[in-house]
Design a protein around this nucleic acid. Sequence first.
DNA 1: CTAATTAAGTCAAGCGAGTTGACTTAATGC
DNA 2: GCATTAAGTCAACTCGCTTGACTTAATTAG
Lengths: 404, 404
Amino acid sequence: MDDISPIRAKSGTNQEGTSAHNRRVMIEALRLNGALSRADLARATQLTKQAVSNIIEDLESDGLVVALDAVRKGRGQPSTPYRLVPEGAFAIGLHIDRHLTRAVAVDLMGSVLARAEANLPFDEPSKGVEIILELIAGVRRDLAGISAQSEKRLVGLGVAMPGPFGLKDSDDKWMMPAWQKFPLLETLAKGTGLNVGLQNDAAACATAERIVGAAHGVDHAVCLYVGYGIGAGLILNGELYSGSNGNAGEIGMALLAPAGPGSTPLEHRASLASLYQHLGLNPADSDIYKQMNALALAEDAKMMAWIEGAAHDLRWSVHLIESIFDPQTVILTSGAPAALARRLVEAMQPLLPSIADRPGRMLPRLQLGTTDPWSIALGAAAAPISRAFDPLFSAILKTSSAPV
Amino acid sequence: MDDISPIRAKSGTNQEGTSAHNRRVMIEALRLNGALSRADLARATQLTKQAVSNIIEDLESDGLVVALDAVRKGRGQPSTPYRLVPEGAFAIGLHIDRHLTRAVAVDLMGSVLARAEANLPFDEPSKGVEIILELIAGVRRDLAGISAQSEKRLVGLGVAMPGPFGLKDSDDKWMMPAWQKFPLLETLAKGTGLNVGLQNDAAACATAERIVGAAHGVDHAVCLYVGYGIGAGLILNGELYSGSNGNAGEIGMALLAPAGPGSTPLEHRASLASLYQHLGLNPADSDIYKQMNALALAEDAKMMAWIEGAAHDLRWSVHLIESIFDPQTVILTSGAPAALARRLVEAMQPLLPSIADRPGRMLPRLQLGTTDPWSIALGAAAAPISRAFDPLFSAILKTSSAPV
DNA sequence: CTAATTAAGTCAAGCGAGTTGACTTAATGC
DNA sequence: GCATTAAGTCAACTCGCTTGACTTAATTAG
């Protein structure tokens, strides 16, 4: 968003933009509906049969779609459905957390094909980056073993890490101060030769839910992510919204009351960090996930007390989110074990009344989303895929760098 | 959003979409930058000189832009700047409130050319509609007196009224139950022969700020509107966001705490309705505006007490909005007299710390926006203008079927 | 005062993605 | 068997943006 000229204006478009958009529309339609024939696509996208035929032919020769057996359905010539080819594109996703980093390789459909994790030194990013680069290299090697074309078809590296980004220098331990200052993206771009993009962890979670989860094909959804911190990933008009500085949805530091004793950040009440503190656990313990799972399954009293408290605040967070965004659904995801997340969602019932409490709803107000701890890395990987293949406004305009 | 076919897909586009987008981009560029030459436009929009020339020629013959005197600026042939023609398009805006309705006619630049108001029976919409239709007809006559082409160039009728819309039947007096049930849009469309669109009042306020106010050219802004109720108008990525049911930003009914005695709707603490109640005023009084102005100027003790309380809650609302949206700025607008609104904004200082408290800010965190009571009607009128002339994603697609 | 330079804007041919309408292919159903 | 229905192709066409050369008109250097 740097202004080269002092004149403010949106970019124009031309036939290239048209064609890029139509390709993306086809891909999205196949992703959302499974296999479709050219005639189906023509009806769904309002394009002519001929235009669709040309585009599909193109996509087929690019190895992004493939024909299935013809199917007869009533009168007329049988139709030939096409589906996406998972191996048509790949992306690497990287999740950087306080004590741990995970890397995955995914395909066009969002299937995870390779994964690796490693511990991370909390305050030594220059060392950490070496670990990360090795991790990525390993995942790439694994991927190359699965598909010979993987390197050619790699669209980018998506990075997810806790936000918020770009604030005042601070030593707040929540914010991984050493990492905030480190030129991470540049280093990774140089070290991998890939296009690199950054999201916060909650946004990545929403991206994951959108490609292979509860938000698949939902255009207005908010994804509450309860991890070490807490954040919301916003899907508005079918696109991830990141705000003016990439910090939209960073509700962890939001105060629960304007003043007085109740005026604590949400993060201090409803996050895994607060749970660890409540239980006296050490977040750097390698088996902490197992410990929590055991406590959740045993309905440990102390944990249940924390759940009650967190649910109290989260119930209200959902109420606020519904009032502000009017989403089709709210999805709660978590880095915690599934048993814990499930109990948390149960404890949030009944939800507070809100404008979401309307007749004719199609989706539940609150759903439990993915609780796989790898889902943030998956979402990170899904971001470059989305950028390359989803129908976005920015993809139509003339300087939408790096299309594919 | 009705699915004609069971296949979910975005619409494709073609040269018409391209051309429509480029026209809109030109218009927006002229709106944001004043007068620009063809060469300027070509640089700003990344289109070729020739393409711009053709489009400008088109716009000129459509009466939307006009050439100014050539200006010399250094070497080379002098450039001929073009500017928008205010009389290039008109729209009618209608603001329906509990006891009052206002209609305005605006031009392409958002200047109000005619206005009229009338009292409205609170719970008799069928009578009310007749009053409204007459009001609109009067404004249209006035407009016709100003420009002979006004009828030909009328792009639509925008309606703003308090939300939320489409909830369960209720007798909540806040929500104007009789009006919610009445088929208002259909009746107005039939009665005026115009395209009709609906927004809630806060959204209209944001639309007004965007066309001629503090949000002019700002792509990420939240507009807090303190009227009879309270709501937020959301400008995200340069477009108004209305949520999945047009109720985004309806924070009036949001509870200030999850439970307990503090658990009241924001609307009961920070809205003009709460002020009227606090002061024992009757909102149906025709001189209530003057009364409030007098009290504000006199720094009436009771009013100052209300301001303190409202500012307390609003300060926190801004904090939450900043945490959630990461906007470039928050704009407070109000139907209250300017003196009152100014005191309210002052009382909100200092703001609570938040992620908006970052280095390198270009805009203030909180600004006082328009306090003209006609601004909602203006925003209502600006909506059809925006829909017809702003570069929107939906404008590129093939069936930009009239949504709202 | 002239010539070189710089920049705005036009001209005319070309390109290319979607459109159009007729045609082919291949099923079902009466 | 023949009419009907629908998928998909062919080939000519359209129309908005692009390309590159050209014209116009100013400033600046010598």
